[in-house]
């Protein structure tokens, strides 16, 4: 196996997936908590919107991001006065992955929060804990394993993101070429050997991430008994 032909894509994929997960962590977990507990008007709308990246083709989202960040777009250099430099960079890849993995993290986090008995939170409150303290001392510790699983699932999704990434970040070897886009590129130039190696690494990483998340999910199910 030629390490040099695989390494840049492998490293970039891990970096992009890690950054993407870090980016969605707070908003997705917060939304998961909100959907788990509160009934509010417009809730089904929020749920549907949050789930959109699961059902719409990733290319549609790639297109959306492209339109948004182009020079003449609403978030482009001309509109903002400075260049966010998202398109055709690793930041664009992070954004695309973050968007596409968001609904999965929300969903899994929501289940994790739903598994925390609300009466335990009431008990904490009646013992004098403030809302923030209830969250920090009771809810999060009890939901912890499920939340880690949620982040790992988001990470797995980000590892394999292609459709939106290739449109927003392009396919520049060494700069924005991930394992997924690298496979596509290798196929295009007929480098089957490279394609096989990249696909192998993708499968390995994806498997490891999903297996670990399942482990945490199992622990979370047994913890809140």
């Amino acid at each position: 196996m030629q390490w040099e032909s695989v390494a840049p894509a492998l490293v970039l994929t891990l970096q992009v997936a890690a950054c993407s997960t870090a980016l969605v962590a707070l908003p997705a977990l917060a939304l998961g908590r909100l959907l788990a507990r509160r009934e509010f008007r417009g809730r089904s709308l929020v749920e549907a919107l949050a789930a959109l990246p699961l059902y719409c083709p990733p290319t549609a989202f790639g297109f959306l991001l492209l339109r948004a960040f182009r020079r003449d777009g609403p978030l482009g250099e001309q509109a903002l006065g400075f260049d966010l430099d998202v398109l055709l960079t690793w930041r664009g890849a992070v954004l695309a992955s973050a968007l596409m993995s968001f609904p999965l993290v929300v969903r899994t986090a929501r289940v994790a929060f739903e598994n925390v008995p609300p009466r335990l939170e009431h008990m904490a409150a009646s013992l004098g804990a403030s809302r923030a303290q209830v969250l920090w001392r009771v809810t999060l510790p009890l939901a912890r394993n499920g939340l880690i699983a949620a982040l790992l699932i988001g990470f797995s999704r980000a590892l394999g993101e292609f459709g939106a990434t290739v449109i927003v970040a392009g396919n520049i070897p060494g700069r924005t070429q991930t394992l997924a886009t690298g496979i596509f590129d290798a196929l295009q130039v007929g480098d089957d050997a490279r394609a096989v190696q990249l696909a192998g690494w993708s499968a390995l990483l994806g498997f490891a991430a999903v297996w670990t998340s399942e482990w945490f999910l199992r622990r979370s199910r047994s913890a809140t008994s």
Binding site: L66, R71, L88, I172
Partner: peptide, 20 residues
């Protein structure tokens, strides 16, 4: 030198959109 290969049509669009 960082290369971005593609069809000239796609590349032209990317240049238009990003000046990268």
């Amino acid at each position: 030198l960082v290369f971005n290969f593609g069809s000239s049509a796609t590349l032209a669009q990317q240049i238009e959109a990003t000046r990268a």
